[in-house]
Computed example of a mutant assay.
Amino acid sequence: MTERWDEVFKAVTSEPRRQLIIALLDAPPDETVPLPKSAVNPNVPRNPTVLHQELHHCHLPMLADHGFITWDTEPLVAGRGPRFEEVAVVFESLQSNATDIPEPLVFGCQRLEQEQAERLGDSPSE
C-alpha cells in the first residue's frame, strides 16, 4: 500500500502532471484531452516546444507506467488509465475541502481558487 501512495504523490509533484489530471477530471471518462494544451497552467504559461518534449520524455511515460493515464502521439492526447481514480481522488478531496486549505497552497491553482471563492461566497457574511 505504501508504494501505491508514493506513486500517487510522485505523480502530483509536477505542475504539468497536475494540470493533465485536472483536465482529465473535467473531461468525460471515455474521452481524451489534447496535449500539450491540457498540461498548461493558464496562470503560468510555458514554452510549448519545451513542454511537448517534457511531456513526451518524462511526464506521460511516468503517468502511463503507473496506469494513471493512457496516451497517443498522433495526435498527442491523453486519456484516463485503469488506475486514474487513485490520482483523481487527491484532487477531488482537495476541491471538496478548498475552504480549509491555507491560502498559499490555493494561490495559483485555478480550480482551487475558484472552488474556494464559490464556497466562501455562499457562506453568510459575518
Rank of each mutant, 00 (worst) to 15 (best):
M1C: 07
M1W: 05
E3S: 04
R4M: 08
E7T: 10
F9W: 12
K10D: 14
K10Q: 13
V12Q: 02
T13H: 08
S14K: 14
P16V: 08
R17F: 01
R17E: 02
R18C: 13
I21F: 04
I22Y: 02
L24S: 03
A27I: 01
A27N: 01
P28D: 13
P28S: 12
P29I: 01
D30T: 09
E31T: 13
T32R: 14
T32M: 07
P36D: 00
S38P: 04
V40E: 13
N41P: 09
P42Y: 08
N43H: 13
P45D: 04
R46E: 11
R46Q: 15
P48S: 07
P48C: 07
T49Q: 11
V50A: 15
Q53M: 04
Q53T: 13
Q53I: 08
E54V: 10
E54W: 00
E54Y: 00
L55Y: 03
L55H: 03
H56E: 10
H57E: 13
H57Y: 06
C58M: 08
H59Y: 12
L60N: 03
P61C: 06
P61E: 07
M62E: 14
L63T: 04
L63R: 09
G67H: 07
I69V: 15
I69F: 08
I69T: 09
E74A: 11
E74S: 13
E74L: 03
L76Q: 11
L76F: 07
A78Y: 05
P82S: 05
R83E: 14
F84H: 08
E86A: 11
A88D: 04
V90G: 02
E92F: 00
S93N: 10
Q95D: 07
N97L: 09
A98N: 06
A98V: 03
D100H: 05
E103F: 05
L105V: 00
L105K: 06
V106W: 08
F107K: 15
F107Q: 15
G108M: 06
G108F: 05
C109H: 12
Q110F: 06
R111H: 10
L112H: 03
Q114T: 14
E115I: 01
E115Y: 00
Q116L: 11
A117Y: 06
A117Q: 15
A117E: 14
E118L: 15
L120R: 15
L120M: 15
G121N: 11
G121S: 11
G121W: 06
G121V: 07
D122G: 12
S123W: 06
S123H: 09
P124I: 07
P124S: 10
S125I: 13
E126Y: 11
